Simulated scan of single mutants.
Amino acid sequence: MTAPRDPFFPADRSIRARSDEPLEIRRLGVVDYEQAWHLQAELAAQRATDEIGDTVLILEHPSVYTAGKRTQPADRPTNGLPVVDVDRGGRITWHGEGQLVAYPIIRLAEPVDVVDYVRRLEEAVIATVRDAGVDKAGRIDGRSGVWVPGTVAAADPAAPTRDRKVAALGIRITRGVTMHGLSLNCDNTLEHYDHIIACGIDDADVTTLSLELGRDVSVDEMTGPLLTQLEDALAGRLVVADHTFASAPDPTKGLPRR
């Protein structure tokens, strides 16, 4: 199978500028969103001047809504909870405990290929989720993230049958260095998604690995597998393939930045 589009350089080559150096993995536990955001900015500035090497932050956040640059007024929560307006792409989403968050602070190889970087993050998550047992997980053309096709979830026959997102992506690249990243729903609540238009998408749903597999799937269980696949994807050992099973409108296309 081929990638959704050809990358700027060979797919089996590392996308990291310094691929000869190991990734530093920092497991931070549960961290306030804004605190983690400031830490990312500090590390990204240090990475841009080679004060540190490539780093991946692994963490969970206390319950919080975050709004990317394309967030629209109608997307915002109806339950009165605060929103952090952030400098990543995309629209609004929710983070909370039980959701595995990975923030790679990576200097990308030249020429910088943002699409290839996003596809490699997706590929790492797809491989992780499929290995866990959600073997039909893949992409929807026109939308970022990792999706499960519209079938009944194993744990709840009454669950929504529309396509549903199990992992969200939102990134920022400054001076060739990445910030933000991905969140994988493991055993978090979905309650808070009911009060927003998550990622600006109202024709699909959100799910968790626990709901899909009919058992508790914890953040701890998924951290090791995700890190392995992420390292392989960035290095080019896990090559991006076309796992697209549907297409849908891009929820950010043509929208002004806030």
Rank of each mutant, 00 (worst) to 15 (best):
A11M: 12
V219L: 13
D12Q: 14
Q46V: 00
V239C: 07
R13E: 15
P4Y: 05
L209Q: 05
E42D: 13
A154E: 15
E21P: 05
A109P: 04
F8V: 14
R143D: 10
H95V: 08
A159V: 10
D194F: 13
H61S: 02
S19C: 12
G224Y: 01
D203S: 13
L190C: 10
L209R: 07
E21Y: 05
E42C: 08
E60P: 04
A158F: 09
I105D: 01
R139Y: 07
A132R: 01
D87C: 06
A168P: 12
L255G: 04
M1W: 03
V217N: 09
F9L: 13
P4L: 09
A109C: 07
V83C: 05
G138C: 03
C199D: 09
N79V: 14
P149S: 14
D12T: 12
T78W: 10
D135N: 10
T66I: 07
A132N: 02
K136N: 10
A3L: 10
S183V: 05
N79K: 11
V30D: 00
V64D: 04
L23K: 06
W37L: 05
D216V: 12
H243Y: 15
P249V: 11
P111S: 09
G133W: 04
V177D: 08
E221M: 06
A241D: 11
I25T: 07
P82D: 09
N185A: 15
A44Y: 00
F9T: 09
M179H: 02
I197M: 04
E231D: 13
V125P: 11
N185D: 06
T244L: 01
V146E: 06
L234A: 12
D141V: 11
Y103D: 08
A246L: 05
A241L: 03
E42M: 06
T252W: 00
S63A: 11
L184M: 15
K69V: 14
I173R: 03
I25M: 09
R215D: 04
T151V: 15
V31S: 00
T78Q: 14
L57Q: 05
V239A: 14
D205F: 01
F9I: 11
E51K: 08
D75N: 11
A137E: 04
G224D: 11
L255Q: 01
G150N: 09
L182I: 12
V125L: 15
R91P: 00
K165M: 14
L227E: 11
V206Q: 06
D220A: 08
V166G: 01
K69H: 14
K69N: 13
T244F: 02
R162S: 15
A235I: 01
V86E: 07
V134G: 07
R130Q: 07
G236W: 03
D20A: 04
G142S: 12
I173C: 06
A198Y: 10
D203G: 09
P22S: 07
R164H: 14
P157L: 15
H95K: 13
L227F: 09
L234S: 07
N188A: 12
E212R: 02
V101T: 08
